[in-house]
Design a protein around this nucleic acid. Structure first.
Lengths: 167, 167
DNA sequence: GAGAGATTGTTTGGATACGAACAAAAAGTA
DNA sequence: TACTTTTTGTTCGTATCCAAACAATCTCTC
């Protein structure tokens, strides 16, 4: 009733609270653990890797997308970062203030804004990417070697389905 | 260079940008797809299920934890919801304004605050949980039946490792 | 039982995060 | 050419979200 509960305690409490109802517990476990994992990993990487560079998780993702393509339209960066256009405007304001990204109008289409990386932004990613990948390796190491590709495939399939459901 | 990219295009672009460097691409794929999936599923469920009830994702998670235990200490709710104490204070303010949760001081320990559900909160969850679970089933359906438990296990292991790394 | 130390929830300040409304520009239509 | 429609990035308002500072309370030690 009081104090902290272990995941196992919580799951059995959930089962007893939902006893008798037609609930798909397997699917519930997959989805809820998807969020638990994403949340835990995100907080972990934010504290260990990103905090010392004054980067939020989203700022890093945006920086990553910008680094991958070097020059990219705003709407494309937002979509690939998984955030809304409105959010991207704010994040780019932060990244620009930190001196990592640039913004310029497209000559061909006056509506578009092209996002680019500064030399500092490229240098930062040059150091950050290997460090980040080292942590990714440690995290994925808890999954048996032969099942990592399968895991990534399943996650891709879930993403595709969720995005398709939003049309 | 311009326009939107498919996930496949992005991955090959990443591979070419990182060519020659000692990068663990398998682990990178697992972690990045973990976030893509969590993000896509969260946005999907927020729009299809939660928006019509004026609930944010976090508000629903907090409501869910409160429903599971009925009475719970603030620090416990925060931990199980995967958010900070500071965030929970704000979310509870919103949920209290909506009439779904209650807050009261503990008699045994004056520092503690006990979170509870109102009748409206319980009624809401009674309707929301089956609807939510239906969507969870649809999402998990893209994973072969025999591999869902395995998937949940792997996600649990990743969570455990990430949390343990933060001590 | 008195003071040091630890624990808990809130407040503060700053950075996301989104939908809706908006202005500017391009594309389509007649 | 004029009008309408569509597309794009920003602004606005509101709601998270966190670390750090804070006040209140409890615990521990002597």
């Amino acid at each position: 009733m009081t104090g902290s509960h272990t995941p196992t305690e919580t799951e059995s409490q959930v089962a007893s609270r939902l006893a008798g109802q037609p609930i798909d517990f397997n699917s519930m476990a997959v989805v809820s653990n998807l969020f638990r994992a994403a949340n835990a990993v995100r907080n972990h990487l934010e504290r260990t890797v990103l905090a010392q560079h004054n980067l939020s998780w989203t700022a890093f993702v945006v920086l990553w997308v910008a680094w991958v393509w070097q020059e990219s339209e705003t709407r494309c960066v937002a979509e690939e970062s998984g955030i809304s256009k409105a959010t991207l405007t704010g994040v780019l304001k932060t990244l620009e203030k930190l001196g990592f990204t640039t913004r310029r109008r497209s000559e061909k289409d006056g509506r578009l804004v092209i996002v680019g990386l500064t030399a500092e932004g490229n240098a930062l990613m040059q150091r950050l990417i290997p460090e980040f990948n080292k942590h990714e390796s440690e995290l994925a190491a808890v999954i048996p070697t032969g099942q990592r590709d399968e895991m990534a495939d399943h996650l891709r399939a879930v993403t595709t389905y969720a995005l398709a459901s939003d049309q």
